[in-house]
Nucleic acid binder design. Structure first.
Length: 276
DNA sequence: GAACAGGTGAAGT
DNA sequence: ACTTCACCTGTT
């Protein structure tokens, strides 16, 4: 096996990149804080370590992966400062926008997002992360990174091949059947996430809603975090609280935020959970 | 023990 | 179209 080499990429003057904001706002389940304040995570079959080093962002990963994976994953082409100012024009959200400064919407793998948010239903984040981790240990490809072994999120085919007995090891409860059926659908092509991604948001959501175990909330999360649909607006119990907190009795339609409603949603969500 | 947790689908109005 | 309820498991 060839010896792996690493690269260290620095992003200068990046006001709108907060590792904590990005990884602790509930959009991804495979990033963990290290002892020293950095975060290590896995996506697209590769590992990265991210930290803030005196005001610049440092991304350590295997050679060539920044350009191949992380640049798009972290949505680096988008000007989040600009979008944040745009959303702040709604004065009721200006505090949430300020608090959420540095949050970015990750471009995750479609299948990983779909499967993870199926698992997320009626669960808390630690348990979601635990189940996802067990799933990756069970049948995700091994990845070596800086002397440690990690596991990629499994291909749908690998999950589809698991027996119910093996799936039971996840302790995912009634979600197990949903996971298995979705995996089989993706594996046999009856669910074509690439095709769904190419559809407009509403049509894409309609397709996702056909999958058993996928309702309004899971579909919206999959659109926003896995299919690059920044206008998707997931509403869960926290968001219901947030909407009534910010807008009270005022009639609320997320479409007022237009193409970037999903980012407004993240600011509201994060502020509601961590900002007060 | 009971209640609840980042929902969903089925069954009942 | 809206309301209610069971669903599996872990935690408080």
């Amino acid at each position: 096996m060839a010896l792996e080499t690493f690269e260290k990429i620095y992003i200068e003057n990046c006001d709108d990149f907060s590792p904590q904001g990005i990884f602790e706002c509930g959009q991804a389940f495979r990033w963990n804080a290290d002892e020293n304040g950095s975060y290590t995570g896995i996506a697209f079959g590769t590992v990265a370590k991210v930290h803030n080093e005196n005001g610049r962002i440092c991304i350590e990963s295997s050679d060539g992966s920044y350009e191949k994976v992380w640049h798009a994953y972290f949505d680096m082409e988008r000007d989040y400062g600009e979008l944040r100012r745009e959303i702040s024009r709604e004065k009721k959200l200006s505090a949430a926008c300020e608090f959420g400064k540095g949050i970015r919407i990750l471009n995750q793998e479609p299948w990983e997002a779909l499967c993870s948010f199926i698992i997320s239903q009626c669960n808390n984040i630690p348990r979601i992360k635990g189940i996802v981790e067990k799933l990756c240990m069970l049948c995700g490809d091994e990845i070596e990174f800086m002397g440690k072994t990690y596991h990629a999120f499994p291909a749908a085919e690998s999950i589809a091949a698991l027996s119910m007995k093996e799936l039971d090891l996840l302790r995912s409860g009634y979600r197990a059947a949903y996971i298995s059926e979705a995996a089989k659908g993706v594996a046999d092509g009856s669910i074509n996430l690439k095709a769904i991604k190419s559809l407009p948001t509403d049509a894409a959501k309609k397709e996702l809603l056909k999958i058993p175990g996928v309702g309004e909330k899971v579909a919206s999360c999959t659109l926003l975090f896995g299919l690059g649909k920044l206008d998707a607006f997931p509403v869960d119990v926290w968001m219901k609280r947030a909407i009534s907190e910010f807008f009270g009795e005022e009639k609320f339609d997320y479409r007022r935020f237009g193409k970037y409603a999903g980012l407004a949603q993240q600011y509201m969500f994060h502020y509601m959970r961590n900002g007060r």
